[in-house]
Design a binder for these strands. Structure first.
Lengths: 339, 339
DNA sequence: TTGTACGCGTTATCAA
DNA sequence: TTGATAACGCGTACAA
């Protein structure tokens, strides 16, 4: 059974006590330059790596933040994570990344695992703002920050895009192009979708377009699901029952839908206009460059992690904070004007 | 200063000792049903979460595996990670995900952080098979498994695609289409690229096409870099000096290159044929559906993590293992036959 | 400036 | 079936 080198080994090799080694590694003060350098040299020779575990147990700090995303295969989330990583790393923290795949039980399970791991704080894109995971974090007084969702609770901090406005911008663009009969694909279980749909509704109302005529298709979040849903629809209802425009809850779903449409020989945007949401890095490069509503993803990760670390390290009990990010339309080639 | 509930608190509340609580939580044996259920109930009431930190310190196991990727924004790697997550989760482990961004120093730094965190094992897509990070892992006898790379060292376990064959398949396809003057974009610093290029060379040799006529452009791995490189090339050399076909080291780079070409009004595949590598999930959906060499990404993650956990948990000192995965060509629309 | 001794929260060992 | 006690490896008052 091989054991790793401990602080004790270094101490012996240097002929000093554990505390001296510890001071040499952390506390620059209260130690003579000579012994400090000698200890450091010996530690390096022995390839000593201080046990993060033991250190955390002692200091009650782990210097890690847990990041719990909904779908790691959707680059919306990895772009957010990239923003997180940037600021977190600069502050000396490590991020622990996991993904719930939109499964509430899994989200709860992973949250508890993060807490067991004693992360200093948690960044989460919650499936629902009132999920068990959120309740758990609140009751345990774990510093956390919601991303890509909102909460009515004034004690909860979050950063989110103005989804109603985003939905409105997108739908207004479609109605301005002359579309009257549309399909909205998303998940009514998610607040973000509901808000985007609310904006969609608002835009239609303004033009006096009845909502009853619209097709609302739900519970879809991931690319695969969008693909499967559209396949089912086309096989059941046929191409002829397609509306003139489709708005999806995010680009991943839009791409899945696009894939299905192409396989069924539906031309975009000639036969159907397609509008996404998020503006993920690939959106402009897919077969039909996707017109979509841009979300500031990287900034979302930056803001959330910056504020979380503030809360972790802040001495005074700071108030919860909320941030709204502005979306904007990015016009590409997936929508056409109706003649 | 708020403290979390510990095993001690539960013990007091239940009127038993720490050891009994511990047994109730882990060891089903050697404890009476009644006390066990009572303890568990009380633990639940107190929302007790055992400290993973303390447990790890005691058991010398963390039940986490570190996953160190090269580029988290390239979905090749997240697809591999998805494969890892699947088997790792089933075995009760958590994965700790990080990304080096092709930076050797960063790779080394992150490796040491993972070791400090006392992960039970490490899965790594190493930038180089002989990097400091790998040396470090070997010298410290940390169980690890290389993905997406090979090693001559018989003690090192790895899983990789047959890159030479992959490069050959791709280049042969291009030469069969009649291409004679090509451009190869990758990084000669990476073994995978060198191997793929070796296959490229082999295919050209078979047809008697001189290698000297080919343009070899290096150090490019990520989408952004591919985009920047092609921009520089076009601005310096002009569109007229473009070859008839471009082969890239991976799809991410191909997409970046495509982006640049489109902006310069170069038509794919009419003006230039473009061939990728990896077959990432988006490859078939980009503006010009990408003809590419498929790698079994998910399987790569599965094999590596399965074997790593075997090594971690295996009692007998198992030999190092090597796996070669077969690539195959996926023909889409980004290459054309030369008349 | 350095060393001693204790605490962090859990599991493992050995008695009872 | 239970409980007391010693690890696990590090940081840190407090003492020297």
């Amino acid at each position: 059974m091989k054991r790793h080198t401990t602080i004790e080994d270094v101490a012996k090799a240097a002929g000093v006590s554990k505390s001296t080694v510890s001071r040499a590694l952390n506390n620059a003060s209260r130690i003579s330059i000579e012994t400090r350098e000698r200890v450091l040299r010996i530690a390096e020779e022995l390839k000593f790596e201080p046990s993060h575990i033991a250190r955390s147990l002692s200091t009650r700090r782990t210097m890690t933040v847990g990041v719990l995303l909904e779908d790691i295969l959707n680059s919306f989330f990895t772009e957010v994570a990239k923003g997180v990583e940037t600021v977190v790393k600069k502050a000396g923290y490590t991020m622990l990344l996991t993904s719930s795949d939109y499964d509430l039980e899994e989200e709860y399970r992973l949250t508890r695992i993060l807490v067991r791991n004693k992360v200093d704080g948690i960044l989460i894109t919650p499936i629902r703002e009132d999920s068990k995971a959120i309740e758990f974090l609140k009751s345990r007084h774990i510093p956390f920050f919601m991303m890509n969702n909102k909460s009515e609770d004034p004690d909860v901090s979050w950063v989110d895009t103005e989804n109603i406005e985003g939905g409105y911008i997108g739908a207004k663009y479609l109605t301005d192009l002359g579309h009257r009969r549309m399909m909205y694909i998303g998940s009514d279980k998610l607040r973000g979708t509901r808000e985007r749909f609310e904006g969609f509704r608002k835009a239609l109302e303004e033009k006096g377009i009845p909502l009853d005529d619209q097709l609302i298709l739900g519970d879809v979040n991931a690319q695969k699901e969008g693909y499967a849903l559209m396949n089912r629809f086309l096989e059941k209802e046929g191409v002829s029952s397609l509306p003139t425009a489709i708005m999806t809850v995010n680009d991943a779903v839009a791409i899945g839908v696009l894939e299905s449409l192409i396989e069924h020989n539906v031309k975009i945007p000639e036969d159907v206009s397609l509008l996404g949401f998020d503006d993920i890095n690939i959106a402009g490069l897919i077969r039909v460059p996707l017109t979509t509503v841009h979300q500031p993803k990287f900034a979302m990760g930056e803001v959330a992690s910056y504020m979380l670390i503030n809360a972790i390290e802040g001495q005074a009990r700071t108030r919860a904070q909320q941030f709204l990010l502005k979306p904007h339309l990015v016009v590409r080639e997936s929508c056409r004007e109706l003649s």
